[in-house]
Design a protein around this nucleic acid. Structure first.
Lengths: 244, 244
DNA sequence: GATTATCTTAATGTCAACAATCTAATTTTT
DNA sequence: AAAAATTAGATTGTTGACATTAAGATAATC
């Protein structure tokens, strides 16, 4: 009798822990929804395990195994899996169980295409209603990118990429776009990690990003959108190439 | 002892039934996933009841009530509600239960903004890889729009609008964008219905749509995107105005 | 009479067991 | 020996019951 997966003692196998706290509170939450229900806690743990690569794509996720591992019943596990299914991180088939989603290269292209469009409108919005605080945050992010790149710190670079991307989504004020971008960002995290192992890709990303920050500073929405598009298209090509 | 809602005898209160079949099969479904599990069936029924206005925004959705109403246990009902939560149609708060999501005007604007961006890339893609079949389908839709408009058939107009919009999403080939557009489209259905009660709004929509179809026929991606943007922006303004 | 505290009720959160179904190994037949 | 059928095991689907918590009503106090 073997379990689907060993007990997990660490979730820092790759040295990167991306913060996903607060992820499963409803997008339209009409107030402080601090109370985390058990399925939500489980979902967050599972997200960490998946995006950090402990659970590999395609791996089956048995309900009883997970229930024993987390010392809960199957009910909450099922609900957590449903949550992750809607996030796209887990694929469920009726009577066949759940598994970590395995993206196809077509999925990858589609996801990057959607991210491009949504990041585009967020950047546009930011270019229209920018502020000194926004600008300094973007500049700080740009600096951090180049620092991490030159230091060859892949893990650190990835974290900064995630943070600055999510900052644009957050600062744009569009809750719907933000929610979707968070979700799609997580789905591509493991592939993005591999993209940034190539120094040239890090430099490309940092350079493209710098252009975006400048477009926002210049309060040029169209240029901001086009810059975002270039960034995501470049990243998409790199990701698809590595993925195949 | 009163239940939250009366037994539902009809789901055609507004004379419009929008087909939402196949909605809850996974976006990345890797094959014929015809087997519908009980929660999915429940979710589809609930979607119909919500978007057709039988369950009004803000209305509480008690698990036991729904369970009795549909003659199932609370388990499947819970999972169905979770599904709808991710769709944005219901809002759940821990220990407080579920309720039909009540959009704010800010939510409305954000949703239309996202729809605009995503429909934009779908139309772009369609303009690049169009075909005779695509063109005839678009033309047919345009004709149906004007027919329904002139006949004053609000319900019919709404159905055609939904169908042609979803066709663009479908035909673009971008599964991710399609999935999101389906979801967001449902969330705005009840408001869109009220928008189209105004004849001028119907004419506006039909006219804007005709322009999109022509841009796609002309294989002009940029023009197609801009036309889509105009359509959604116009609709957004009308919807927000009516909503307040 | 208004306010606060307590209590009752009802709803949600969680669990364990039963039923249905799929997978895979074993056996039987050609 | 290979292929098909059957059977055993494991896994998911569903249910009902129990525990916990929030909301409303009642009563007591200021």
């Amino acid at each position: 009798m073997k379990h689907a997966q060993q007990p997990v003692t660490t979730n820092e196998r790759f040295g990167v822990r991306i913060d996903v706290a607060g992820t499963f509170s409803n997008s339209f939450a009409s107030g402080p929804n601090v109370i985390k229900t058990l399925p939500e806690q489980l979902a967050e743990k599972l997200v960490e395990l998946i995006i950090n690569g402990v659970f590999e794509p395609g791996q089956r996720l048995h309900e009883v195994g997970l229930a024993e591992q987390f010392s809960v019943s199957r009910g909450p596990v099922r609900e957590a899996l449903r949550l992750l299914e809607r996030e796209g991180l887990v694929t469920m088939a009726s009577r066949k169980g759940a598994a970590v989603t395995q993206l196809t290269s077509k999925n990858l292209r589609d996801i990057f295409s959607v991210r491009s469009a949504l990041m585009g409108i967020c950047a546009e919005e930011l270019a229209r209603h920018q502020s000194a605080e926004v600008q300094s945050t973007l500049d700080e992010g740009t600096r951090a990118l180049f620092v991490a790149h030159e230091a060859g710190d892949v893990a650190g670079f990835l974290v900064v990429v995630y943070q600055v991307s999510m900052y644009v989504a957050e600062a744009s004020g569009n809750e719907i776009a933000k929610s979707i971008l968070f979700s799609l960002g997580r789905q591509t995290l493991s592939i993005t990690r591999r993209v940034f192992e190539v120094p040239e890709h890090r430099l490309m990303w940092a350079t493209d990003w710098k252009e975006i920050a400048e477009a926002i500073r210049a309060e040029d929405p169209v240029r901001a959108r086009q810059s975002v598009r270039r960034l995501l298209d470049d990243t998409s090509k790199a990701a698809v190439a590595i993925y195949e």
